[in-house]
């Protein structure tokens, strides 16, 4: 891949990684400068970003599955087209993010292989099933809503290609979020059966969505260095609180009840939620969520069944190049 060429010199440089360079690098970060693919960067910075961006890309791709589950069953043609366009957007985000990750020197093929081998993670939210049409509304409203909370600060991330990718991704995500909320609004203004469907979806998704922001600050492994490198600008708990504060009035407007009877509003106006069941989170991360096996199996199936197509495309491209060379020689 052409992106690997960017890093040929880099490999040699890594040995020279010294305190002076690291200090210079940190000074650039502190001055809010963007780091670009050809710039020197500490190996750990590269590794952290490769992990984060590729996990993000995998999440977009695996995230196509729960929503894709409803494309063929969307209740109206308008909803069908909107959902298909949305899932297609996610695929576009995935491609865009893989390209951003590749600028750090690992090819898309390697990154995808790591995901298929179960070695790379993706957002655990996609290991929950979409059982009813209301789940499609809820995912747009809450899952995309939580993703936006996480991603808006990433538009100012120190790594240029990731920051730029996030600007575009956030624009589309906020459109998806409004679309999801509009689905919920339609359900909540509909029949009792539709409203119950909306409430049931909120009940099932609420806690997993709060877990999307990651473990509580006290136990998070990556936050310190990520903050220093300005990859991360707010802590997990800060973002989670922001999200809850933004979401509670939206739920109230829909006439839905957040499934947290212990939730209270503090004097500053923040909605304080009850303790999150982190055992569930750990179980899903460990591969024991309701859909972990199905999601990975679906990705592997597409990959395996598509192998002959990719081989054919590569073989044809090689033949064509060969013919062109032969023609040029004549």
């Amino acid at each position: 891949m052409y992106t690997q060429a960017l890093n040929t010199a880099e490999t040699d440089d890594r040995g020279l990684e010294d305190a002076a360079r690291a200090a210079q690098f940190q000074a650039r970060i502190d001055a809010e400068e963007r780091i670009e693919p050809n710039d020197w960067m500490p190996a750990a910075y590269r590794k952290t970003l490769t992990r984060q961006i590729s996990q993000h890309a995998h999440s977009e791709i695996v995230g196509m599955l729960p929503e894709g589950n409803w494309i063929t069953r969307a209740p109206t043609l308008r909803r069908k087209a909107a959902l298909l366009a949305k899932v297609q957007d996610e695929c576009g985000h995935g491609l865009y993010l893989y390209a951003a990750a590749e600028t750090l020197g690992t090819s898309r093929e390697e990154l995808v292989d790591a995901m298929l081998a179960g070695k790379a993670k993706y957002s655990s939210i996609f290991n929950y099933p979409t059982l009813t049409w209301a789940d499609i509304g809820t995912i747009g409203w809450l899952v995309d809503g939580a993703a936006i909370m996480n991603q808006i600060p990433l538009c100012r991330c120190s790594y240029g290609p990731y920051a730029r990718a996030m600007i575009r991704v956030c624009k589309e995500e906020s459109f998806h979020q409004r679309q999801g909320y509009e689905i919920m609004l339609t359900l909540c203004r509909g029949s009792d059966e539709q409203k119950a469907m909306a409430q049931d979806a909120l009940n099932r998704w609420w806690w997993p969505v709060l877990m999307m922001f990651g473990p509580p600050d006290a136990t998070s492994q990556h936050s310190d260095t990520s903050t220093k490198w300005k990859i991360k600008r707010f802590s997990n708990d800060e973002l989670r609180q922001k999200f809850v504060d933004a979401t509670v009035p939206q739920a109230q407007y829909l006439g839905l009840t957040i499934p947290d009877p212990g939730m209270t509003q503090d004097p500053e106006g923040h909605w304080r939620y009850s303790d999150i069941d982190w055992t569930e989170f750990k179980q899903v991360l460990a591969g024991n969520g309701p859909c972990n096996r199905d999601r990975l199996a679906a990705r592997r199936k597409s990959h395996d069944e598509g192998a002959w197509v990719r081989e054919a495309a590569a073989r044809y491209a090689a033949k064509r190049a060969q013919r062109q060379t032969a023609q040029a020689a004549e």
């Binding site: 063929t72 298909l84 491609l95 679906a298 199936k301 197509v309 990719r310």
Partner: peptide, 17 residues
């Protein structure tokens, strides 16, 4: 649309959708 999420490569997920 049945292909969406299951195509042989991401570029074809995009194109078929």
């Amino acid at each position: 649309s049945e292909w969406c999420g299951h195509a042989p490569m991401l570029e074809e997920d995009m194109a078929l959708s």
